[in-house]
């Protein structure tokens, strides 16, 4: 923390995370599905561990309740005119 290239960017992000976690929890999405951690470029192993653990946690939790509600037809195709 505090070493953001954009000065306070990661503090701002942290505040958002702190806000969003209880909020999504309140609407029934497990707050553990949102995970933020700040690691520096020198903490490679920590980053790897963290991501691995997070993925394991997610696997354990099973699919998100949102999964069944999301429509996959979201890609806009307008701009690709042959």
């Amino acid at each position: 923390m505090g070493e953001c290239h954009y000065l306070e960017g990661n503090y701002t992000a942290q505040k958002r995370i702190n806000f969003l976690k209880p909020l999504i929890n309140f609407v029934g999405i497990e707050k553990e599905r949102l995970h933020a951690k700040w690691v520096s470029s020198a903490q490679a192993s920590e980053l790897v561990n963290d991501i691995t653990n997070f993925i394991d946690d997610l696997r354990e939790m099973g699919p998100s309740p949102l999964k069944s509600k999301i429509n996959p037809d979201s890609i806009k195709t307008d701009r690709y005119k042959p």
């Binding site: 309140f26 609407v27 029934g28 999405i29």
Partner: peptide
């Protein structure tokens, strides 16, 4: 109203909101 919802299980809360 908030407390009542918070007493629910996460999945029930999700269904409630959905």
């Amino acid at each position: 109203s908030v407390a009542r919802l918070e007493s629910l299980e996460a999945r029930d809360r999700f269904d409630w909101w959905m």
